[in-house]
Design a protein around this nucleic acid. Sequence first.
DNA 1: TTGAAAGCGCTAACAA
DNA 2: TTGTTAGCGCTTTCAA
Lengths: 332, 332
Amino acid sequence: MRDVARLAGVGTKTVSRVINAEPNVSAATLARVNDAIAHLNYEPDIHAGSLRRRGGVTRTIGLLVGSVANPFAGSIHRAVEDRAIERGFAVFASSLDEDPSRERNAVSAFIRRRVDGVILTRASSSQAYLLPEIERGLPMVFVDRPAAGIDTDSVLSDNVEGAALATRHLIDRGHQRIAFLGDRADIWTAGQRREGFLREIGQAGISTRETAIVENLEDETTASEAVLALLRREQPPTAIFSSQNLITIGAIRALRVLELQRRVALVGFDDLPMADLLEPGISVVSQNPSGIGDAAARQLFARLDGDRGPIRKIVVPTQFIARGSGEILPPA
Amino acid sequence: MRDVARLAGVGTKTVSRVINAEPNVSAATLARVNDAIAHLNYEPDIHAGSLRRRGGVTRTIGLLVGSVANPFAGSIHRAVEDRAIERGFAVFASSLDEDPSRERNAVSAFIRRRVDGVILTRASSSQAYLLPEIERGLPMVFVDRPAAGIDTDSVLSDNVEGAALATRHLIDRGHQRIAFLGDRADIWTAGQRREGFLREIGQAGISTRETAIVENLEDETTASEAVLALLRREQPPTAIFSSQNLITIGAIRALRVLELQRRVALVGFDDLPMADLLEPGISVVSQNPSGIGDAAARQLFARLDGDRGPIRKIVVPTQFIARGSGEILPPA
DNA sequence: TTGAAAGCGCTAACAA
DNA sequence: TTGTTAGCGCTTTCAA
């Protein structure tokens, strides 16, 4: 910046005015400074500026998602980026991997870099450690799962309703023996989806002895093995509700192995790429990840703009997509 | 930091020593300072530190990919993050969208935030604008596509060989009328894959009048329409090589519409999720995005560690995966 | 319209 | 082992 000032024959404050598009710079000076900037390939240091700037804003936000390699997270990320870029904000992205220590480290990394706000998914069981940051006024929006131990803005899918919708869909087609497949029971969304499932089973007056609840499925392989075991029982389920992406893929594989994909109904929670190209197509309850990301970013920026309104809990609706696998009827 | 120093009854330099795990702090002082840090929930400002620190490192890198919503980019991103996190680095991620102005803006956003290095995919036709940054010593690795107009480290898939492999696979099965489907011809990878295709066609002595080259397919829909048109010709192709992901999906849809998915061979460039669950399974040349990200991050960190060796062009091999669609024989 | 001086939170250099 | 002073690149404050 000193070099630019010297080259343009002005003081550093004038260069500062030009960079920040402040008023009270004559056209001639403006041109001279801009020439000097171009000539020296000068890029101002945002963080040096934020040090003294009132509010200390860095035009940077932090985003913590399940894993940046996961398409669900990718869609959230993209929506957040699109909102951020409009305002000249940059986005730090980190992956959580269901690991509480990664959560803490990521948040700390964001804070040490003085982000203006954060959009977070949680893995640990309490976010009380964020209390001091809230008091300091760090805007914070939770996505996919609500914070525990603190009250913050959040943007969530309607997990209970989505699961209930899928379950009702199967019950309406006459299924009574319906299996529930869930991932790690300590994950908040897993519990919510289980709740929706059980609610509908109860309302339909189906005995819980008829339903199989299989939880803590970690990946495709364990899910596939669990489904193979289920279907080899004496009274196998006539329908399956799989409450997570990878588990649904495992279930599809198991059904194929037994050649039952046209005889046993299957509905998955969360959409799958090319699900409509399989035979039968896979019926799902789809979430709206870019809607979640968009809402979260809007809420965060509203807070950054000074919105001091009450905490908002935004629920993004899910949608049932019938493609065939969920419309299979129970054997007569 | 002043508050911490005061509370611990030491000077700020001592706090600085503790934060940075520098030697020459007595155990007693260390404990007092750490207590004060915990008590005040103090998190040091990395950027304020970097201002004065020699080298000015911020432990931050910038990553620019096609789109963070794209699974290919997601895998690269995740691999980069895994290497970065080991060293306490944070990652800025941005999407390119094949838009030269987004490229410039993203790079500028990174530089203004004083990243220590960048991993970039390009959209614009020349990266000569980065010359000053190179001279200033900003480490830089290009992924997926090489930089143009400057000489930098890069990590690329073997696009020409991969496309040649796919083409040879089809020729070896007796196909003569093979169609090439490509995306925007100005995209570097598109040209490379076309080159590999044409090389094998030429070596097999197949007349180019027998092959159909359809380029500038923008998405699934245009690809699907193009394939429908191709297959309705008098002399339709007996095999299709689709050189990009979304185009392959469009081709699959078109083949299904005409019920030709078991009669016309199809090989795609880039793997598709659940490609093995379709009927027939989709044969592909798969890239190794996490291998690309890993190699790029390793190279970048080697440069950050002071490696001043010659520019490296790393090629990550592709792999042919036979699943059925590519093994369909031409009609007798 | 412009610039000089002070200071943001931290580390380098040096002195104690 | 510890602290003091200066200064990183910028913005604020205030005077010219």
